[in-house]
């Protein structure tokens, strides 16, 4: 059900943009929507981060995955139980760039046991890391279209990515990889029962949307061959804040507009979805705090100073007699047989 909804939604987006292109709403598709999308993305992303940041972190609660810093002769695990800001940054670096926690999953399959089907865990990490890195490379590669002159790192990426020269224009491995890996991540959600059970439309939709973006991109580049000069002109215009709609995109311009519309959709959808994990991962209190809570006091802004314990005095009042009977020292020794006061 949720899968079907997502599929329909993505097809809907494609159809809408195709129709808009047919009726010639090029300014809307090529200028208004992309600008709106970028604004929504930037505004939404910032808003979400600020919104999270507005909620304080009342307690210092890192999940410790290794030996704490304690006695000098006990080896402190600086990465898994960091106690300084530098160590926390190292932990976060591995977390963000190499998905260290997810990688832990691979360990568990090492020991003996009856041989059975497959080990999904390893693939989840691999799928995740390949997907994210590929996505990043593809985004960076697009900088060729964004700015002039083309930044140096783009050339480097292109030459590595286009190492296998299969097609003309140069075939980029990432184009194939992203289709494969997104397909894998999608199939995984459908095939593994416990993952299917927990999956929502919000899980299928972004995968399908990204798949659609990748496919339209591939179509545009290798098969329908939109005129790249025109594309560059349009995108440069957008980035230079002097937008133009070029008329030399060729007969297959529609695929470019669909691609651009889908990317815009992703940008708009991003801040309101789970995709915000991109920003959220940096803010997770179980990961981004040092394990030094006994060394440095953490401040809770809403700590309520009026919460007091049941006082010792009240306690002694309650139990003075029996305390005396076992010889416990008293703050206020009342002589009378009965307790003198309340």
């Amino acid at each position: 059900m949720s899968m079907l909804v997502s599929l329909i939604a993505v097809f809907g987006l494609v159809a809408v943009s195709y129709m808009m292109e047919l009726v010639g709403l090029h300014t809307v598709l090529g200028i208004i929507i992309p600008y709106t999308a970028v604004l929504v993305f930037l505004g939404g992303f910032t808003y979400r981060i600020i919104d999270w940041a507005r909620s304080p972190v009342p307690f210092k609660i890192p999940t410790t995955c290794g030996q704490q810093e304690s006695l000098s002769w006990i080896k402190h695990n600086k990465l898994e139980s960091p106690s300084t800001t530098g160590q926390v940054m190292a932990r976060m670096f591995l977390e963000v760039f190499f998905f260290r926690s997810l990688f832990r999953n691979t360990k568990t399959d090492a020991t003996e046991g009856p041989r059975l089907l497959y080990t999904s865990d390893k693939f989840l990490w691999l799928g995740g890391i390949v997907f994210h890195w590929t996505f990043l490379v593809i985004v960076l590669r697009h900088f060729r279209l964004f700015v002039e002159p083309v930044p140096g790192f783009v050339h480097l990426l292109e030459s590595v990515d286009g190492f296998i020269q299969l097609t003309l224009p140069t075939f980029y491995m990432t184009d194939m990889v992203i289709v494969l890996v997104v397909t894998y991540l999608f199939i995984r959600r459908v095939v593994i029962p416990q993952v299917k059970y927990i999956s929502l439309a919000a899980d299928f939709f972004p995968l399908l949307l990204i798949l659609a973006i990748a496919l339209t991109g591939i179509l545009m580049r290798y098969i329908l061959k939109v005129n790249i000069v025109g594309v560059k002109e349009l995108v440069h215009g957008l980035f230079a804040l002097s937008p133009v709609i070029p008329d030399n995109l060729g007969s297959t311009a529609y695929i470019f507009y669909i691609h651009l519309f889908l990317v815009s959709s992703l940008l708009v959808y991003f801040p309101f979805s789970k995709l915000m994990h991109m920003g959220g991962v940096f803010m997770s209190p179980t990961r981004n705090l040092p394990n030094d809570s006994r060394k440095h006091r953490h401040i809770n802004p809403w700590n309520d100073p009026n919460i007091k314990p049941h006082s010792y005095e009240a306690y002694e009042d309650d139990f003075r007699k029996v305390m005396k009977s076992v010889g416990l020292p008293l703050e206020k020794d009342v002589d009378g047989e009965e307790e003198g006061e309340k």
């Binding site: 568990t108 399959d109 090492a110 020991t111 003996e112 046991g113 009856p114 041989r115 059975l116 089907l117 497959y118 080990t119 999904s120 593994i192 029962p193 416990q194 299917k196 059970y197």
Partner: peptide, 16 residues
């Protein structure tokens, strides 16, 4: 349940 059965089937480690 199928979600559980899949786990029981796929994880071969004696302890996990």
């Amino acid at each position: 349940p199928p979600e559980t059965a899949q786990l029981l089937r796929s994880k071969k480690d004696q302890f996990s």
